[in-house]
Simulated scan of single mutants.
Amino acid sequence: MNYLKSHITLILSLISILISIFMFRTFDNILKLYEQNIVNNYSIVVVSDSIINNLDIPQIKKIEKIDIKEQISALQQKYPNINFKNIKLPYFYNLKLNYLPSPNELKNLKNSLLNKPFIKRVLTHSTSQTKIYNLLMLLKSITKTFMFITAILGTLLIIKQLEVWKLLHSERMYIMELFGAPFWIKGAALFKIAIIDSFIAIIITLGLIYFITNSIIFESIINELNINFKINYLQEFGILFIVSFAISLISSIIVVMSKK
């Protein structure tokens, strides 16, 4: 019974690490897609006295002229006594950016635009943009911190469990050491246990991942964010496979080579 509990402890530790890594990668990819979606829909409005073709500012990806014919027609109907055709109106432009700028970057960008003599006004919607940016950065920090904490605690738990198994096989390992056996033969029992449990952990983790990513809740969240997010299960399997076996083997080597 204790032997079975030991296996379950190691498997659950690996699963928690693999799940945290997968969730971090998935959440990071979702945030990147959502951030790009925000960038595509976000723009800075500038009012200029002259036509703008190029601003020589690296953050600006695209310059789009705003057609104000409808607004002029509405004003003409509202004020029929004024001939707006004889009034020289400024030019309005939407500036599309390459990425979502930080509040400081946005402030510097606004100042750079206002330094242009022909630009009279800049609308950055900085309040809403700052809130979105800070929220995205907070979510990234939380997921990264959670992944590292889970990985560290899980790895320490795996090492402790392998040390218990080392004590159970200590007599056989001691005899092998007396005969000059290399460490990979001396610790063959631990390596075998670690590899088997790693394989079991990967299978269970992939099952959980498939269940989570195909759930109604997960799909509804993706639809609400309005992003095109697809999971490459083969790629995720490869990454988790490498991580799982690397953690198990490295933990086993540390335990076998330790003098406790």
Rank of each mutant, 00 (worst) to 15 (best):
L33T: 05
L33Q: 15
E35A: 04
E35L: 02
Q36V: 02
Q36F: 06
N37E: 11
I38R: 04
V39A: 05
N40C: 02
N40M: 06
N41R: 13
N41A: 07
Y42R: 00
Y42G: 01
S43R: 09
I44N: 03
V45G: 00
V47F: 13
I52S: 04
N53T: 12
N54W: 11
L55P: 00
L55E: 02
D56N: 15
Q59K: 12
I60Y: 01
K62L: 08
I66V: 12
I66K: 10
D67F: 11
I68R: 13
I68T: 13
I68A: 07
K69V: 07
L75S: 07
Q76N: 09
Q77R: 14
N81R: 13
I82E: 11
N83G: 04
F84D: 03
K85P: 01
N86Q: 15
I87M: 03
K88S: 12
P90Y: 10
P90L: 08
P90T: 00
P90C: 05
P90K: 09
P90M: 10
Y91Q: 11
Y93V: 05
Y93Q: 07
N94T: 04
N94S: 10
K96V: 06
L97M: 07
N98M: 05
L100P: 00
P101L: 02
P103A: 05
P103R: 06
N104V: 12
E105S: 06
K107T: 12
N108Y: 14
N108Q: 15
L109S: 05
K110A: 08
S112M: 12
L113N: 08
